[in-house]
């Protein structure tokens, strides 16, 4: 088991290296830079060139990369041009916000998907199954940004049940109970909007797993032992079908990242997704590279998590 994990982690190192190079080079290839369009027209263009020289922007890319990666290893992503503060500091709160948003979204996703998937799989080809499958396909077909806008308009503006932007009511003192409640309150609508749309894969995956497992010989054997239907489902079918879902968990993170970029911008939620879009439009390189790198790392870690979970829960892999 540990051998497997160690080997799996070692594979990650080159993955992360390639990822960082790719992100860095792509960011450099973006047209324009942080100084273009931002500077007082009275400043002499020659001076701007000088600043660019000073910043080392004309050095060969690999030198720039080496400087950057050297910092990254020490958790130093450089300065943000736009906000005139260290990127690390800028991201601090936002990472936390995004983390909570993702976590709550995941919880919602599983709360919705698991019971629906189980019902759908257990009673396949009944009316219940058709309704659930219909819902999940609808979710699959609906673009997340449209659905999120509709949710925001209905529950945020029309009904006014939820706040329409931000991550917490301003003026509350961190650490108090009110602060915590306000945070959760701000999370619910964006998380729910995303969860309702992204449950598709989990529901369908679980449904197919259950239908598949139902027809396995060992289920017949369980029945032949005299196990009741509920025991057959609880002890044999669900356990065996939830296993791939558990393993799938890490990959959900990738979907979440994609979704959060839309969700955070639509709900004005100050997280990493929002920061990424802002920094791209402002050519704030150090922030762009930092956020993308962190997203990439999250995805790679998610895949790692999936593999490790699978190796823990599935005895067939555990042995090797």
């Amino acid at each position: 088991m540990w051998k497997f994990s160690v080997r799996r982690i070692m594979i990650m190192i080159p993955q992360l290296f390639v990822l960082s190079v790719l992100i860095f080079v792509l960011a450099k290839m973006m047209p324009g830079d942080a100084l273009s369009g931002q500077i007082d027209p009275n400043i002499d263009p020659a001076r701007i060139e000088e600043i660019r020289q000073e910043m080392g922007w004309y050095d060969p890319w690999h030198e720039q990369y080496a400087r950057w990666i050297g910092g990254v290893i020490q958790w130093d992503f450089g300065q943000s041009f736009r906000f005139k503060m260290p990127v690390t500091e800028l991201m601090g709160q936002r990472i936390e916000n995004s983390f909570w948003l993702s976590l709550v979204t995941l919880i919602f996703t599983y709360l919705i998907a698991i019971p629906l998937g189980i019902t759908s799989g257990r009673y396949n080809d009944t009316l219940r199954d058709s309704l659930i499958t219909g819902y999940s396909y609808l979710g699959f077909a609906t673009p997340i940004f449209i659905f999120a806008l509709v949710m925001l308009w209905v529950f945020g503006f029309q009904l006014g049940w939820f706040p329409t932007s931000g991550s917490v009511t301003p003026g509350l003192v961190p650490g108090t109970f009110d602060y915590f409640v306000s945070k959760v309150y701000h999370l619910i609508l964006p998380a729910l909007s995303m969860a309702l749309i992204t449950t598709y894969s989990t529901i369908q995956y679980l449904r197919n797993e259950i239908i598949d497992t139902k027809q396995k010989d060992f289920i017949l054997l369980a029945r032949a032992k005299g196990a009741s239907e509920s025991r057959v489902y609880n002890r044999h079918i669900f356990r065996n079908s939830l296993l791939p879902i558990a393993a799938f968990f890490g990959f959900e993170i990738t979907t979440l990242i994609g979704g959060s970029i839309f969700i955070e911008n639509i709900f004005g939620y100050p997280g990493m997704g929002q920061l990424l879009i802002e920094s791209i439009s402002l050519r704030d390189y150090s922030v762009v590279t930092a956020t993308t790198l962190l997203f990439g790392m999250a995805a790679v870690l998610g895949a790692l998590l999936s593999d490790i979970i699978l190796s823990i829960v599935d005895p067939r892999i555990r042995i090797k």
Partner: peptide, 15 residues
């Protein structure tokens, strides 16, 4: 009543 199945490779719960 007990039953023995054809394929022992699939008749047991792998987990």
């Amino acid at each position: 009543m007990g039953m023995i199945f054809q394929d022992p490779l699939t008749a047991l719960n792998p987990l």
